[in-house]
């Protein structure tokens, strides 16, 4: 499945890998990735051979959010992203795209700003010991909303609010993220993909219908105040 420019898609039996592939730019989401993400999630959802999806990044960063400068040079993409943001009709994560299969985020390095979408919206999150989490929005005059709202539904609010208000001036490291339950496991960086693959294979042994029902009921619980 090599027809994406900004993503790498690998199928290994029941496990699909959706890998951010703009390593030179911190895997930031440019206009192209913006479109390709929606397409890729949709494709993995309808592919009956795929039972579990692992989401990770190539290079040193996991995901660093919207590549605003690149997006600004593409008026059509900018308009689309603005519209989707305004109406909360984003199509970047599995949750946005209505994916019903289990998603494991394997955070391989820096996860910044909009990158936190993919942590908040995954079912299981593991991280390399080199991973870190930072939300620079307010340091550049931007509001932090969807990502931190999603995180605070799943982790203690005080630490999420601190991350949102400290902006680029403070990072949460992998061990603290594990302690807080933002991630469930920290492994040496060179073991991350192997471990994510093991977890995915374990989950993939379960009945897909059961997994779908389970995922739906748990995420529905977050919809109740």
């Amino acid at each position: 499945m090599g027809d994406y420019e900004t993503l790498e898609l690998i199928l290994e039996g029941p496990v699909a890998w959706l890998i951010f592939d703009r390593a030179g730019d911190g895997n930031a989401i440019d206009a192209r990735m913006f479109v390709e993400l929606e397409d890729a999630w949709g494709r993995l959802e309808i592919d009956e051979d795929v039972r579990v999806i692992v989401n990770t990044g190539n290079g040193r960063s996991f995901q660093t959010g919207l590549d605003v400068r690149q997006l600004a040079s593409n008026p059509e993409a900018l308009r689309a992203s603005s519209r989707q943001t305004r109406d909360f009709q984003l199509r970047m994560t599995g949750w946005h795209c209505g994916v019903t299969k289990p998603i494991i985020a394997a955070v391989n390095g820096t996860c910044a700003g909009g990158g936190l979408h993919f942590v908040a919206d995954a079912d299981v999150v593991i991280a390399a010991d080199t991973a870190s989490f930072v939300d620079p929005h307010v340091s550049v005059g931007q509001v932090s909303a969807f990502e931190t709202i999603g995180l605070l539904k799943k982790a203690p609010m005080g630490v999420v609010a601190r991350m949102a208000l400290m902006g680029r001036h403070e990072r949460v490291d992998a061990d603290r993220a594990r302690q807080l339950g933002i991630v469930s496991e920290v492994v040496p960086a060179d073991r991350l993909r192997a471990r994510a693959g093991e977890l995915a294979a374990t989950i993939a042994q379960q009945d897909p219908g059961t997994l779908r029902a389970l995922k739906q009921s748990l995420w529905n619980a977050l919809e109740v105040q």
């Binding site: 340091s139 550049v140 931190t148 208000l165 109740v224 105040q225």
Partner: peptide, 26 residues
């Protein structure tokens, strides 16, 4: 050092999220 206006809006979004379910909060 961070933008006061952006922080105020962020704070409203986060505290609002305690009043609503996930999608409504977003």
């Amino acid at each position: 050092k961070n933008s006061p206006a952006a922080m105020a809006a962020t704070k409203k979004a986060l505290w609002g999220a305690l009043e609503a379910g996930l999608t409504d909060a977003c």
